[in-house]
Nucleic acid binder design. Sequence first.
DNA 1: TCATTGATATTG
DNA 2: AATATCAATGAT
Length: 203
Amino acid sequence: MSAGRLAVEPLAAARLLLGASLTCRGVAATIVEVEAYGGVPAGPWPDPAAHSYRGPTPRNTVMFGPPGRLYTYRSYGMHVCANVVCGPDGTAAAVLLRAAVVDAGESLARSRRGETIPGAALARGPGNLCSALGITMDDNGIDLLDPAGPVHLELGGPLPAHTGPRVGVSQAADRPWRLWAPGRPEVSAYRRSPRAPAPGASD
DNA sequence: TCATTGATATTG
DNA sequence: AATATCAATGAT
């Protein structure tokens, strides 16, 4: 039902998700930073930086499924990152959740992240966000719009958004598909991938 | 700026 | 089978 609102292009879905609230295992948080990702070369949103670019694999199949599902992957062997699948069923696209404000369950989040972590840093960065909320690889593929599910998404916002280049990707790094809520200390500092070509390079 | 870390995808 | 590549983080 409300999943239909996510059956749209990645950038539009990203705007919807800014300001949405995410609840998981005792922690509620408001999303303040996201990154949009597209899909295969022949699709509507070709994106060489997307995991789905080279077609379906065992890892990324959920990105090719219906919108509103959770796609989790392990990054650099140590972090879990969470994406919300968007676009119509059968078309790969997703939005990476990069940072959130912890609204409730702060002590629980701190017990997962470390007792000395400042509040603004609890869910800053995609790996830290999953850690604070207790999202694991076992949650891959679940329906985020099911209120009875372990991870629940409530579309709220949208918040006013600033846009800029994506973080961490070595391909199509200049595409302005990173969105954040301006002025929030929870937003992660921008850091271009060391592997990305110089800004504006035609290549 | 660099080490960490392991799954995944690609190549031979 | 072997190698290269990360949608990252924290410390230095």
